[in-house]
Nucleic acid binder design. Structure first.
Length: 425
RNA sequence: GUGGGUGUAGCUCAAUUGGCAGAGCACUGGACUGUGGCUCCGGUGGUUGAGGGUUCGAGCCCCUUCACUCACCCCA
């Protein structure tokens, strides 16, 4: 492996055949669940105008501020590879008149996202999300529906142990008030906090609350930290407590975490994350799914005032949590081997004919000794091998060998299709 | 973006103090000229991630760089 060979771009990885079946499993399971819930698939472009993300996700967020793949195209427009899915779907929802003609719409997507982060376990620069957006329903029923969908999807995928962490971030009325209360609370403590936290007081005060430094934690625990729940307006309080009641009715367990934060600016009210494991300890591992309500996004994009709630789930992170599964059994293959060049023509022709009849027939394309051809057939998982050589050409037959039983018999060439039909059911 | 760890054949890993770069698997050929798996024998495959330095001599020490990985950060 010399460095002269071309390598893939950092953080962009190949998904090899030995792993692709996991992806397909996740994708088809997701599509099944979405169909049950009445969500429709939508596909939006990987490129959007940079402006779309900076005004919605937030100019100051890390995602927009330092992680986007942004470039100027030949006509001078600033474009970005999408760092997340929600905003693009909201754009499409507006652009195609759904907001007007069918405000209650629900969409899902399975798509690659791009963020220029430092690659790490479960964190790539091109990563893949399964996401869903439910538009037009203001009540907590919509939040609960979306959460139930995630839970159903995860358990269908075989992930039995996960915990749902829940919080309300408040709306555009109560959010700024809480923010100010928190900053007022933290500023006097700043000298005793770690350098990171001192910086966070301005940039992201909520992050101070789950700092990993023991000293910060004990300091905060000795004070009565203001909680968002105490600052919520009445409407937000109602929404949040109703949601909790619905989740209980649906028998969906959750853990309240007043310090749960979202990294994108458009979220209001409900915010949730799903972590692997029962404990709900959310400091150790990364969330496998997250989302929330974003009632202001549509209007901030220039549309009417319409509520929405959605989530996104990281496929790579799901795969890391997937229980050990045996790869699905592949259809038994038929290998066709040839001795001699005229036989080689015949097997390729015969293989094509067999494929037309639905048999996964694979003619050996490389040739060489029969032994080598047998070896490849065996390694390739063939159960039956058809051999054609001079003898078979002469008497218009083919030799059919069962690799498992180590038995073989001659079959008239013209009968091969019906012979195989009996043989392989 | 910050800090730590690791890079040796396609894969998994050896190599004494700085002293001839190796094994297993895989691939390939033969034993067995038209019959796979098992066994035995042989072969291909490496600028030791890359570049520079120290040294009679570097896989090993030093510097730089790239990649992977872990923690921070961020987030799905």
């Amino acid at each position: 492996m010399t460095n002269k060979t071309v390598q893939s771009v950092r953080g962009f990885v190949d998904i090899l055949p030995e792993d692709v079946w996991k992806w397909r499993f996740i994708e088809t399971t997701a599509r099944e669940v979405f169909q049950l819930y009445g969500f429709e698939e939508i596909r939006t472009p990987v490129l959007e105008k940079t402006d779309l993300f900076s005004r919605s996700v937030g100019e100051a967020t890390d995602i927009v501020g330092k992680e986007m793949y942004t470039f100027t195209d030949r006509s001078g427009d600033s474009l970005s590879l999408r760092p997340e899915g929600t905003v693009a779907v909201a754009r499409a929802y507006l652009e195609h008149g759904f907001a007007k003609n069918r405000p209650e719409s629900s969409f899902y997507y399975l798509a690659p996202m791009f963020r220029h982060e430092r690659p790490q376990h479960g964190r790539l620069r091109q990563f893949h999300q399964i996401g869903a957006e439910l538009f037009g329903i203001p009540g907590p029923e919509a939040d609960a529906e979306v959460i139930a969908l995630q839970a159903d999807l995860l358990s269908r995928l075989g992930l039995k142990d996960f915990s749902l962490v829940l919080n309300s971030l408040g709306c555009r009325v109560c959010q700024p008030q809480y923010h100010q209360r928190l900053v007022n609370f933290l500023e006097p403590l700043a000298p005793q906090l770690c350098p990171d936290c001192r910086r966070r007081i301005q940039s992201n005060p909520l992050r101070v609350l789950d700092c990993k430094e023991a000293e910060c934690q004990s300091l905060l625990r000795s004070q009565s930290v203001p909680r968002i729940s105490e600052s919520l307006c009445l409407v937000c309080q109602d929404h949040f407590s109703e949601l909790q009641a619905i989740l209980k009715t649906l028998e969906l367990e959750f853990i309240l975490d007043p310090f749960l934060v979202r990294g994108l600016d458009y979220y209001t009210r409900t915010a949730f994350e799903i972590y692997p494991g029962r404990a709900g300890g959310r400091s150790r591992t990364d969330a496998i799914s997250a989302g929330g309500r974003y009632d202001e996004l549509i209007s901030e994009l220039g549309g009417p005032s319409l509520p929405a709630v959605g989530f996104a789930l990281g496929i790579e992170r799901i795969i890391l949590q997937l229980p050990e599964l045996p790869p699905p059994a592949t259809k038994p293959a038929l290998a066709l081997l040839a001795v001699g060049s005229s036989a080689r023509r015949l097997i390729q022709k015969l293989a094509r004919e067999l494929k037309a009849n639905g048999f996964p027939a694979r003619a050996d394309l490389k040739g060489g000794s029969l032994k080598a051809q047998f070896h490849r057939a065996d390694r390739g998982g063939a159960e039956l091998v058809i051999i054609i050589g001079e003898d078979e050409i002469k008497d218009q037959t083919v030799m059919v060998r069962d690799l498992k039983k180590s038995e073989q018999e001659k079959v008239p060439a013209k009968d091969i299709v019906s012979y195989l039909s009996n043989r392989l059911k």
